[in-house]
Amino acid sequence: MNNKFQKTSSTSDSYRDGGNKGGIVIVDYGAGNIQSIKFAIKRLGFDAVLSSDTEEIKAADKVIFPGVGEAGSAMKMLKSTGLDKVIPELKQPVLGICLGMQLMCRHSEEGDTEGLGIFHADVVKFNNGLKVPQIGWNRIYDLKSNLFDGIKEQEFVYLVHSYYVPECAETIASTEYGVEYTTAIQKDNFYGVQFHPEKSSDAGEKILENFLKAPNPEKKE
């Protein structure tokens, strides 16, 4: 596989706070609750660093791309730091969570925002008379990825969102909320989950662990 980003001098950055043995980087591009993801990773026995440094992100073994606030302003923050160019080129496993997953799509109705274009899907708003945002626990089914190893069909996960990704060829889990839609999506090394694995009890932690243990084809053994 063609590797555009050789791990060179920047490798040391991801090890800078000591115990980051797995080289897990959580992309930090603004306010919001991203500590919870770090804490969940720690409960699983791994360490993660928060970083907005493009070199550090490129050098990571695993990248977690969380969601923060509103799509339009989040994209602006990504553009201002150059992360909008870096993320789609990553070769290691990348997990987008909530808005992170939505930003990895082509377009979002929220603020008429152009996304990173990784997933071949467009994000639209719930418009079916049900409560918006959807807040709470709902079921995931039609599970189609090793991300869900050890997870049973119809497992409950915690969701908070007003916009959704319709079902598409890249869907690896669905949920029903007035409409059947994508709650997890995968293309090559890119994964996205609409739910919050870090807040979805034991099942969520298992999904997060599956991602953290996913093989990294770029890693030199």
Binding site: N33, Y158, G204
Partner: peptide, 24 residues
């Protein structure tokens, strides 16, 4: 590993920022 809400005497953007940054 489940969500939680924090309330009581929250009156500014700064108050909220601190709580969310600490994991609420």
């Amino acid at each position: 590993n489940i969500p939680f809400t924090v309330g009581g005497g929250i009156s500014s953007v700064e108050d909220v920022d601190i709580l969310l940054k600490n994991g609420a």
